[in-house]
Amino acid sequence: MSILEVENLSVSFKQYTDGFKEINHKVISSLSVTLEAGEILAVVGASGSGKSLLAHAILGILPRNASISGTIKYKGVELTAARLATLRGKELALVPQSVNFLDPLMRVGSQVRTASNSEDVVSAQRKVFERYHLGKEVESMYPFQLSGGMARRTLLSTAMVSGAKVIIADEPTPGLDPIVIKEALSNFREFADKGCAVMLITHDIESALQITDKIAVFYAGTTVEIASVKDFVGKGEAIRHPYTKALWRALPQNEFISIPGSQPHPSSLPPGCLFAPRCEIATPECEQAPPDMRELRDGMVRCIHAT
């Protein structure tokens, strides 16, 4: 059963330049992903491709100048602002990307306790800290006293302690050492196996491959491919989209070669395929109109040339 469905989501930001001139930046366009119960979906892609915005859109915490179209459903029913308000922090939890999300004036132990929905918040917090190798002295520390990795483990703790059904983890692993990463990821796996679901936003493809079921690849605010984990082997022959192939080849354990350029800014998106300007196999046809997402070999791809 689909626990979370995002259909045709678009997000744009209203900005004012030169006084009263209003412009709309479309940062996410026609994006669809579904998250099944018992599943971990990895969302990978370039930084600035809209991965975090998707997380914030689902949880309804985008800034006020953002406007959304499309639908987001939780357990088959549309997630309205009112419904979100009752579910957020109870059934839906976020592991935020930035360590700036911690309250700088509150001891981290207390912060984690406010996130817990259990009867005995203190022991719940201690249990989760122990799990993430945070010593007893850490609970009375303030965020500025933590190292980058400790702060990240604190953020993880707040989500794990909440008892949520769906966790949206926005880059939970950078800066953590391999032992803690392994612990956190196997925790997610366990969590999903209980019938819950995790959306793991990451660029660490290697870790994602170890625990996730499928991978959604983002580029310039939309999904270019949804693939099964088992497609990511060898030289990436089974991968469908040229951008996904480029990402795979750029990994240090693979070829470590990059393609030139960077993804287009929302203010100057190309009219056709968003990846066409950097694509090796682009043809004039690609610049005509944005390609639709289509099914291909048990996956989805947004490319007219993919085979």
Partner: peptide
């Protein structure tokens, strides 16, 4: 210091090259 940790694989390879 964890210079390319936050970046995608392609950007990481670009910067390091």
């Amino acid at each position: 210091d964890e210079m390319t940790t936050m970046l995608d694989a392609n950007t990481q390879a670009q910067i390091w090259h």
